[in-house]
Design a protein around this nucleic acid. Structure first.
Lengths: 127, 127
DNA sequence: GTATAATATCATTGGTTGATGATATGATGA
DNA sequence: TCATCATATCATCAACCAATGATATTATAC
């Protein structure tokens, strides 16, 4: 057996996709798609709580998906690379054709954006 | 406050990206990138255990990212849409520029592909 | 029919993650 | 200096997910 490619590269790439795979982070990235925004703007647009957004922004910043600039009292965030936006776009496009399947897939679920009130999970439906 | 876009769409899109955000699933998708493969082929290429691969294949199938065809005793899987491959490619390209940041991001971690022996997690480093 | 190879299903469980709430830091203006 | 606004940090804990191992199903060959 020889592996498709370096498992470490796979792990890293999976981690990269996870950056996009959380509703809070994804809503932040989506909000930034049309231009830079202040944290305050992000809070307004996404409806996330302050500390939640700040935690995720730190994560996105560490991962290199967004960059931050202090401007007076405010900090302005923007997407770090055009490919981040392209990935969002491609995901959106793909989703438009596979949405039903994704919706019905019961192996995993995402938490509802910004809240703890998660949907009931339907793991294993009896045949 | 008005939200960037339908939270339900965000949740779904996040769920889609999660399809790519697990090392086992990602290694399967990557293995399929150069053409259709039998489950047995996938096991060989990825090193995943049979039941683990089968579980993830079911998930990818449900989500519409791959399709399956029975051929005799074997089942052949292939990517369902060109955009799946494009997403992998774009992710790879982006990773080549942000890999260090992703590696060092400590907010979340992926399990090592196909095994339970996970790396130690370094959640919160003291300043 | 029986045996065997290929794949699928599913319950269990340990480790991980994300939201929260409290607190800390930093920047500006009075 | 103090007050206040903007943002960051961090510990806690409930919820979730993925690997495993056992078992079931399906297909072929004999």
């Amino acid at each position: 057996m020889f592996l498709t490619s370096d498992p470490k590269a796979i792990d890293l790439q999976a981690k990269l996709f996870r950056g996009f795979g959380d509703p809070s982070r994804l809503s932040i990235l989506t909000a930034l798609r049309h231009g830079p925004l202040t944290v305050t703007d992000i809070l307004e647009k996404t409806g996330l709580s302050q500390s939640n957004a700040s935690n995720h922004l730190a994560c996105l910043r560490d991962c290199g998906l967004v960059t931050a600039e202090q401007e007076g009292r405010y900090v302005t965030y923007h997407l770090s690379d055009d490919r981040v936006g392209e990935l969002l776009e491609l995901g959106e496009s793909l989703l438009s054709d596979v949405a039903r399947g994704v919706y019905e897939c019961t192996r995993y679920n995402v938490p509802s954006a910004g809240t703890t009130k998660n949907k009931a999970v339907l793991r294993t439906l009896p045949k």
